[in-house]
Amino acid sequence: MLQYIVKRLLGLVPTLLIVGVLVFLLVHLLPGDPARLAAGPDANPETVQLVRKDLGLDRPLPQQFLRFVAGALTGDFGKSMRTKRQVSTEIADRFAPTFWLTVCAMAWSVVFGMGIGIVSAVWRNRWPDRLGMTLAVSGISFPAFALGMVLMQVFAVQLNWLPTVGADTWKHYILPSLTLGAAVAAIMARFTRSSFVDILQEDFIRTARAKGLSEPVVVAKHALRNALIPVLTMMGLQFGFLLGGSIVVEVVFNWPGMGRLLVDAVDMRDYPVIQALVLLFSLEFILINLIVDVLYGLINPTIRFR
């Protein structure tokens, strides 16, 4: 088991390296001179030259790349070109709001998604199923940005129940996490339903029923445990989706998170911030997959790690 984790972690290195090289190249492919942008609209060429030196962009590209790699290995991603603060502090400030938003969205979408999925499977082809699946297919069909706008309009502007902006109190988390989680909840519901439907037809469930166990016990004890495995995988995959989805949702809700930071950084050609953020996104994504695989083994000990 430990060996497996170590092996997977080592396998992470080449992927991250490729991502790092790619993102460095992509960033330098972006049109627009960052020095010109940072110098501002009324700067003359002399000032632009000063700023270019200040940002270290006057050095040849290979040298810049080596500095980036060397820095990244020691965890130093340099300074933001926009605010001149350390990229690490810049990201640290934004990490928590995005992290909690993702976790909130994940938590409720798993609860609702699995709930709806189980209900739909148990009452298959009857009205709870129809209702649940209608909700679910609507959930994956509604773009997050449109849903966000609608929720904001109704609950914040018209009814004035919830705040619109910022990430200060728990109330601020409600609308964005609903927006972000809607699609995931829908996918979880559909997925849970289909894996439950399969399992409820398995022999061991029939046996349990034949033994005279009540239906709730059968569902909760026998079916749930076995259905959890594919659902868990799905959850891991969706976590990555949430990370990406947060970009759009953060723009709609003006959320002070990493998604907004990334959009702003791309806008301002803030190379160090873009590089660090993309690496971080990729790392999170890969780690989550690893965690899912490990949990997989814990739930179902018959799976061997190679």
């Binding site: 049109p31 627009g32 001179d33 010109r36 942008l37 632009v48 806008d267 050609r269």
Partner: peptide, 12 residues
């Protein structure tokens, strides 16, 4: 034009 394009195609 977004900021980067503006710089690329006009300002510089």
């Amino acid at each position: 034009l977004e900021a980067g394009q503006r710089v690329e195609k006009v300002e510089s």
